[in-house]
């Protein structure tokens, strides 16, 4: 990463992709979820689906390193009807599919809107990748970066585009902190240093409504999108 750019990434609250569908109606809000392998992206997506599905018309696009693994998990968990879950194949390069060449993902979100729409929200989950993988603004309107306490409490300090610029940083698996010796206070301070005013949520999906704060953040984005 470029250290001289650590806190000066561009503002991301823009919607560079056309907000209208070809028929003139407003398209679904697209939120990306990225983060390293095993940090709990798919579990967060599953929990979000359960929390939101009764009030929000939503669908999910997964980007797997191998095909369909994450989509298969979501199908098994039955968090959404199968027609609302689509897998994009990424040719061993998940970051390419969400950032450098977003054509397959754009096709997937458009197909979902055509086939099961109208939709309010599409969650686009990236394949597990490294700390530099972020979503293109041509693909998503906002992005959540998911890290976990077991991956090391120095990740917020290390920064990288995901940690520093994501619209929401989720520090997952806080229940594991005592076992892996992670200092949550230090993670919070480092995150604040890297992200200034951008929000951070500490989350454990093992508690009741563990996804509540993230779900509330998503609802707020939906309200903004509807009123924009």
């Amino acid at each position: 990463m470029h250290l001289d750019h650590a806190t000066t990434y561009p503002e991301r609250h823009t919607h560079s992709a056309d907000a209208q569908r070809p028929d003139g109606t407003r398209r679904a809000l697209r939120i990306g979820l990225g983060g390293p392998v095993g940090s709990g992206k798919t579990a967060t997506v599953a929990a979000l689906c359960r929390a939101l599905r009764d009030t929000v018309s939503l669908a999910v696009v997964t980007n797997d390193i191998y095909t369909r693994e994450d989509a298969a998990f979501l199908l098994r968990e039955a968090v959404l009807p199968p027609e609302r879950i689509t897998a994009v194949e990424t040719g061993a390069c998940p970051h390419t599919a969400i950032r450098d060449d977003i054509s397959a993902n754009l096709e997937a979100v458009e197909d979902l809107e055509d086939e099961v729409g109208p939709l309010d929200l599409i969650l686009v989950e990236s394949g597990g990748d490294n700390l530099t993988a972020t979503f293109s603004k041509g693909l998503v309107d906002a992005q959540i970066f998911v890290i976990d306490v077991a991956g090391g409490d120095d990740i917020p300090r290390k920064g990288g585009p995901g940690v520093t610029t994501a619209d929401l940083l989720v520090v997952n698996k806080t229940d594991l902190a005592p076992y892996v010796g992670s200092d949550l206070g230090r993670m919070a301070r480092d995150a604040k240093e890297q992200r200034a005013e951008l929000p951070v949520v500490f989350q454990s999906l093992r508690t009741d409504d563990g996804v509540g704060p993230v779900a509330e953040w998503v609802r707020a984005r939906l309200r903004d999108w509807a009123s924009a």
Partner: peptide, 12 residues
């Protein structure tokens, strides 16, 4: 090869 047209996900 970086022209963003989806080719990266196909091995031919």
């Amino acid at each position: 090869g970086r022209f963003p047209a989806g080719g990266h996900a196909h091995s031919g």
